[in-house]
Design a protein around this nucleic acid. Structure first.
Length: 896
DNA sequence: GATTAGAAGGTTTTT
DNA sequence: CCTTCTAATC
């Protein structure tokens, strides 16, 4: 045990006279840290004993409660810092918590070794007992990339076609199993059969065996191994039972089954009478089958106290798709009978309109514990939640850009504004627009620093040096830079290593002494091997930052990039320097490596004033004065795939996402939807999201389209006919059946609930953007240089020549969205019949004979009358009288 | 072994 | 449409 407990002077036993005395002492004059808490928050802080569930709605001071609670436990002498287990999901949350506790209790926070993420605490526990699961305590934590490479090897070893059975897919399946806390033996038979010709279970077993051989584990194992240890070694578990007096869990709604089991093992003390603390879990992940009886807290006899406090918000559970079990939070009271449930509903963040809109929306969900946020702020000046329509996504970006500029002119900081999108492909249009506007923006969630190729290569070198058994790292760098050590050499090394059961590096060391390799590769390998030996030997002797530099120099890695002519090379070298710099804070190379494995993140430059663009998922927990929510269209949001695969609960999760989005706004929330969006390069008609119809009329304002683009459709909502807001049309609860909904359907040619969108939506990536740590600058520079670094993208920014005006299509090339309405622009453009590929595509190509033939006159709801120019299956090419030539689906037109 | 053409596939993501 | 990865070249 490394932490600084003082067993000689235990904290007063809760409930003891000393404890009560302490509490009483605090009672008359409440300590300062309790000031300013509302009654519910205060209850959440002061109910220290027994299980507590705090349902903390968005913006209700959740973190404050958590940190104050810890401060209170410490200040009242209930426990020492080292006796508190406080778990979060992200490093960021852990860091913030630590800082804020520090503000309350000062130095004491430094004595809290058990404040961290599930995974970092898992690592800590595992390092202490690694040998119990067959690892050495200096095991490596594999990152997903290594994991996939390893799985690929295994799939090939099984003689499976790695095309048909992609490693990535198996990695996902594996992840799912581990999220559920399942060991190879426990996975459902069906699952096991479904992958790789029934070899799923075998692959899982092989994978685990391989990890053990590599002295490594993956992220999932950081939870699963401790669970196995706790189950198999009651003495170890007891040690932790004794240690942790108070447990706190943040974002409880995001916990998966494995995390639940982990927590439960720690929280559940053995009962006196039926002393069976650890029962084996059966194969099924279903909670009721796990063999746990509810924990009876503070029950008669000696059942020890479980001072577990979980904080969460079922309405913000948005990670079901990656294994989170909302059910964990919904069942808390059953799991822990007698639990105190405290609701925090007083919101300090948003206006009444925003809260009203969010609450009304989320009320459409059935699976929830039910909370209603309220605020005391009542400012008649507060803006309602705005709903805007745009013709297409380009206009959406343009209009939002304009609005942001206007807000900026009014004195708002860009830092106070955010654009929250459902899917990352939506970001691009905003980026493009902002670049042409010269508007600073920052993208959250791009490729992370530690995921960059050069960084991963460098780390692989370090890993080889620190952990000679790390074959994966060795494989990564054996021929980087190019040394002429290709497949042949590697295969030989593998065979050699396997036959002797030694790691690759060791094998390499031996092979170079033999005649097995040709002179050239032999020499190259020898140089690498001697380098490794030299570096390993220098490990404790030379300062780690210097050693790191030395490794990169001597291996030729730095040189490789110096000789690289490509545009990215300088940036990569810069990143390598940054890597070395960031090592300063750590004591040694191994210490740094551990940090890297768990904390895959880069600090964003927050000094710069910039609009934030990010996904709704990554926005959870944040707040902004002004929030833009674009893309509220069926199929995109709610996402088609969530609907298809998740059914009602999928829809509910999407709705929670919408709720999260709205509740990020403090002052203003502006929702947008468009009528046409480009999906996979093809333009598709879209219909407004059902969530729009679930917003309450009295908190929402439907905005008229700005004048320059107006003129389409009869009402404000482009082309969709009247919406429920602009008439006296009644407002009913039925999500699918509001007048607006039905009209929208009718107006788009009877497109169902997205069914026609084929197999889903998606889009390009923003990944090519070569962000340095400061995304904003990198992107701007790239355009400033004129020479595009990436592929295609720069072709869309025509030089910079003439900022594209706001008029329609400065950039419209041959792929255009359908022109709006009755061809506003149809004859305005220069030259001849334009090639218009505005395609409305359905994947379900009917083989039937078309009802139409060339020359037929047809009518299309959006494009008006036209003449059929060509027929191709169920797709027609139509020369519209006003809108030009388009390809449309037969079902979208009718004969006239 | 490096370059290049073609195919596949394209929600959300932390650790 | 656009990116990414693999297979087929030189």
């Amino acid at each position: 045990m490394t932490d600084s407990e003082k067993p000689s002077a235990p904290a007063p036993r809760p409930g003891s006279i000393a404890a009560r005395a302490l509490a009483a002492r605090g009672a008359p004059a409440a300590p300062g840290y309790l000031d300013g808490l509302n009654p519910e928050q205060r209850a959440a802080v002061e109910t220290t004993e027994g299980p507590v569930l705090v349902l903390a709605g968005a913006g209700t001071g959740k973190t404050r409660v958590l940190t104050t609670r810890i401060a209170h436990i410490l200040a009242s002498g209930r426990a020492y810092p080292s006796q508190i287990l406080a778990v979060t999901f992200t490093n960021k949350a852990a860091r913030e918590m630590k800082t804020r506790i520090g503000l309350l209790v000062g130095e004491q926070v430094e004595g809290m070794p058990w404040l961290g993420t599930f995974h970092s605490i898992g690592v800590k526990i595992l390092r202490r007992h690694a040998e119990l699961v067959g690892l050495k305590s200096n095991f490596t934590v594999l990152d997903p990339d290594d994991q996939i490479r390893l799985i690929k090897q295994l799939i090939q070893a099984e003689n499976l076609d790695d095309k048909r059975w992609p490693a990535r897919t198996f990695a996902n399946i594996l992840d799912g199993w581990k999220n559920k806390g399942l060991t190879p033996r426990e996975i459902p038979e069906g699952d096991a059969r479904a992958f790789g010709n029934g070899k799923g279970r075998k692959l899982y077993e092989d994978y685990q065996a391989r990890l053990k051989a590599l002295n490594a584990c993956d992220f999932g194992d950081l939870l699963l191994h401790p669970i196995a240890i706790f189950r198999g070694h009651p003495d170890v578990l007891a040690e932790y039972h004794k240690k942790f007096r108070y447990m706190l869990v943040d974002e409880y709604q995001d916990t998966n089954v494995a995390q639940y089991l982990w927590l439960r093992l720690l929280a559940q003390r053995p009962q006196r009478r039926d002393a069976a603390p650890s029962q084996p879990a059966p194969a099924s992940p279903a909670r009721d089958d796990l063999g746990y009886s509810p924990i009876v807290a503070n029950s008669r006899e000696a059942a020890p106290l479980i001072n577990l406090c979980c904080v969460g918000d079922d309405d913000q559970s948005i990670y079901g798709w990656r294994g989170a079990e909302v059910d964990n939070i919904l069942r808390f009271e059953k799991d822990f009978p007698g639990a105190a449930v405290i609701r925090l509903e007083r919101n300090y963040r948003s206006t009444a309109h925003i809260l009203g809109a969010a609450s009304h929306l989320i009320a459409h969900n059935e699976d929830r514990l039910g909370k209603t946020l309220f605020t005391e702020r009542a400012d008649p000046e507060d803006a309602r939640v705005e709903v805007h329509a745009a013709w297409d996504s380009e206009e959406e970006a343009r209009a939002i850009g304009e609005e942001i500029e206007q807000l900026q002119r009014q004195g708002h900081a860009l830092n106070d504004m955010a654009i929250l999108v459902r899917a990352s492909f939506q970001m691009r249009e905003f980026e493009d627009r902002f670049v042409t506007l010269g508007l600073n923006y920052r993208v959250i969630g791009g490729p992370r620093f530690y995921e960059r190729m050069e960084i991963r290569d460098a780390l692989a070198y370090f890993r080889c040096v620190c952990q000679p058994a790390d074959d994966l790292a060795f494989e990564r760098i054996v021929n980087t830079p190019k040394r002429g050590l290709g497949d042949v050499t590697l295969r030989l090394l593998h065979d050699y290593a396997r036959s002797r059961s030694i790691p690759l590096i060791a094998a390499a060391g031996e092979v170079v002494e033999t005649e097995e390799l040709k002179p050239k590769p032999r020499l190259a390998l020898k140089e690498l091997v001697t380098g490794m030996r030299r570096w390993s030997e220098a490990l404790g002797r030379v300062k780690h930052t210097e050693l790191a530099e030395q490794i990169l120099e001597e291996s030729g890695y730095t040189e490789m990039w110096q000789n690289d002519r490509s545009a990215e090379a300088p940036g990569r070298l810069e990143n390598l320097k940054e890597l070395i710099r960031s090592m300063e804070e750590y004591e040694s190379l191994p210490a740094f490596l551990e940090h890297v494995a768990l904390v895959m993140e880069t600090d964003q430059n927050e000094d710069l004033d910039a609009v934030t663009i990010m996904t709704l998922h990554s926005a959870k927990g944040l707040e902004f004065e002004v929030v833009f929510l674009p893309g509220w269209e069926e199929g995109l949001f709610p996402h088609q795939r969530a609907l298809d695969e998740g059914g009602r609960s999928g829809l509910e999760e999407e709705r929670r996402l919408a709720y999260v989005g709205i509740t990020r706004g403090k002052k203003r929330v502006k929702i947008w939807f468009v009528s046409n969006r480009r999906i996979h390069g093809l333009w598709q008609s879209t219909i407004p999201s059902r969530f729009l119809d679930e917003l309450p009329e009295n908190h929402v304002e439907v905005m008229e389209p700005s004048t320059s683009y107006g003129g389409y459709g009869a009402s404000g909502f482009g082309g969709y006919g009247a919406s429920r807001w602009d008439g006296s049309a009644g407002f009913s609860e039925g999500a699918y059946h509001t007048p607006g909904w039905r009209r929208a359907q009718a107006a788009t040619g009877g497109m169902g609930t997205g069914a026609r969108h084929g197999d889903g939506w998606s889009g390009g990536r923003v990944r090519d953007i070569d962000y340095t740590d400061d995304g904003v600058k990198a992107k701007a520079d790239r355009y400033a240089r004129g020479a595009g670094l990436g592929s295609g993208r720069q072709s869309e920014a025509p030089g910079f020549a003439g900022r594209m005006g706001d008029g329609a299509g400065a950039r419209r090339g041959h792929n255009q969205p359908p022109r709006r309405g009755a061809g506003l622009y149809s004859s305005a453009r220069a030259g001849g019949p334009r090639e218009i590929a505005g395609e409305l595509v359905a994947k379900s190509v009917s083989t039937e004979q078309s009802l139409f033939s060339v020359g037929d006159r047809v009518f299309h709801l959006k494009f008006g009358n036209g003449t059929v120019a060509a027929v191709e299956g169920n797709k027609l090419t139509v020369d519209f009288d006003k809108a030009g030539q388009k390809r449309v689906l037969e079902s979208f037109v009718e004969a006239i």
